[in-house]
Amino acid sequence: MYVAVKGGEKAIDAAHSWLAEERRGDTAIPELSVAQIREQMTLAVNRVMAEGSLYDPDLAALAIKQARGDLIEAIFLIRAYRTTLPRFGYTLPIETERMDCIRRISATFKDAPGGQVLGPTFDYTHRLLDFKLAAEGEVPDAPTRDTTPGPVPHITEFLNKEGLIQTEADSDQTPPDLTREPLELPAARALRLQSLTRGDEGFVLGMAYSTQRGYARNHAFVGELRIGTCAVEMEIPELGFAIDIGEVELTECETVNQFKGSKVEPPQFTRGYGLVFGQTERKAISMALVDRALRWKELGEDFEGAPAQDEEFVLYHADNIQATGFLEHIKLPHYVDFQSELELVRKMRAEATTALREAAECA
């Protein structure tokens, strides 16, 4: 018979100590500092901030260190910490056309107004291991940076001069806050975008890839991908006007998608949209593709049964913290549940054996 393990508290304390020892590793090697993680593992830090819904590079780096590099665990730590913070107000909408871009590219216009800036990217590397990085004391030469100062208009707006792309309707309504209210379906586009930007990068990437393979017929062009910093403004009631309280680094992607038209709309292009904390361009592009796939009803398109078109499937499975919690709970003690299943299977086997024996005797 299975019985409950005794001495659990002592075992848990020992497991915590062992975990701390494993996290530290060989003490003969200098400890990795939070500042080193923040400055040299920025893409991991950016992902933790984006999916943790908290823009703080220092806290994200600390979470990565505590989680031994497990980014989902780090995201969990950040979300848990976020719940302890007071909410003292809301900022004004960020104006991304005023972004100071370090990277700005378009796959639709070669001579994009404002110019294209390749910026820091893996796109043009050879994907060969650089063993020079294994040498201690390696200090790279500082290259001359070519940046595009804001404001820089969005490239997709140039299609609007001919009316070739759907105009996005402005809304004065305050969007719901997914960090304070549970997700309910059907969800407005603003809520879907919140869910996608917090969603697991791998899952959103898989959904986006499925659209490119034909599940939703969502062939897209990257109208513009831009990365840079945007000012964050907040209205102060005591002052009666808005002030700049800081800046955040963002990645924004707008895709241009084909649209054959409907009974009320002429043939034109439509958009997919992605916006994520930090330099997280793979996530932003994926988000834009999935956003466009989820707009099928709004645009009067047919539902083809594609996973990326299924709002319930995408939004309820995108959150890696919810998925992790439900997945990992099955490794916790389920002794009583298993005992009931065990007794049920024994009873069913006994009944089946008896039935077979009686059938054999009758024969």
Rank of each mutant, 00 (worst) to 15 (best):
D58V: 14
Q36A: 14
A35G: 08
L59F: 04
S33C: 05
A63M: 12
A61K: 03
Q66I: 09
N46W: 15
L43T: 15
D58F: 07
E31T: 13
A60F: 05
E51S: 13
V48P: 05
T42Q: 13
V34C: 14
A63E: 04
L62D: 00
V48T: 09
A60K: 09
Y55M: 09
L43W: 08
L59M: 06
D26I: 01
K65N: 09
G52M: 01
N46D: 11
R23W: 00
R38K: 12
R24F: 08
V45C: 05
R24D: 08
A60M: 12
P57F: 08
A60E: 10
L32G: 04
Y55Q: 11
R24H: 03
D56M: 07
E31V: 14
T42F: 02
S33M: 10
M41Y: 13
E31H: 12
S53V: 04
G52F: 06
I64P: 06
D56L: 05
L59V: 12
A44I: 03
E31N: 13
K65L: 10
T42W: 07
L32E: 08
A50T: 10
Q66G: 09
E21N: 10
A63N: 01
G25N: 03
D26W: 07
E31F: 00
R24E: 07
E22D: 03
S53Y: 14
R24V: 12
A28N: 10
Q66R: 15
D26S: 13
L59W: 00
R23F: 00
V45H: 02
A50D: 06
S33K: 04
R23E: 05
N46S: 15
D26C: 00
A63G: 04
P30Q: 07
A35S: 14
I64N: 10
D58N: 14
L59P: 05
L32V: 11
G52V: 01
E39W: 05
V34G: 07
A50N: 05
N46P: 11
Q40D: 12
L62A: 15
R38I: 15
E31D: 15
M49V: 09
R38V: 10
Q40A: 03
S53A: 08
A61P: 02
D58M: 14
Q66T: 14
I37N: 03
E22S: 11
D56H: 13
Q36R: 15
V48R: 04
G52D: 00
L62K: 08
Q36L: 11
V45G: 08
E31I: 14
R38T: 10
E21G: 04
A60S: 07
D58Y: 00
Q66K: 15
L32N: 05
A35E: 00
G25K: 09
D56P: 00
S33E: 03
A61W: 03
A35I: 11
G52S: 10
L62E: 10
L62T: 08
G25T: 04
G52R: 04
T27R: 14
R38S: 10
L62H: 02
L54M: 14
V45N: 01
E21I: 06
S33Q: 09
Q36Y: 12
T27S: 00
Q66P: 02
Q40C: 13
K65A: 10
Q66E: 15
R23G: 05
M41P: 02
A63R: 06
A60G: 00
M49R: 05
A44L: 12
L62F: 11
E51N: 15
R38G: 02
E31C: 07
I29K: 06
S53W: 13
A60L: 07
A61C: 09
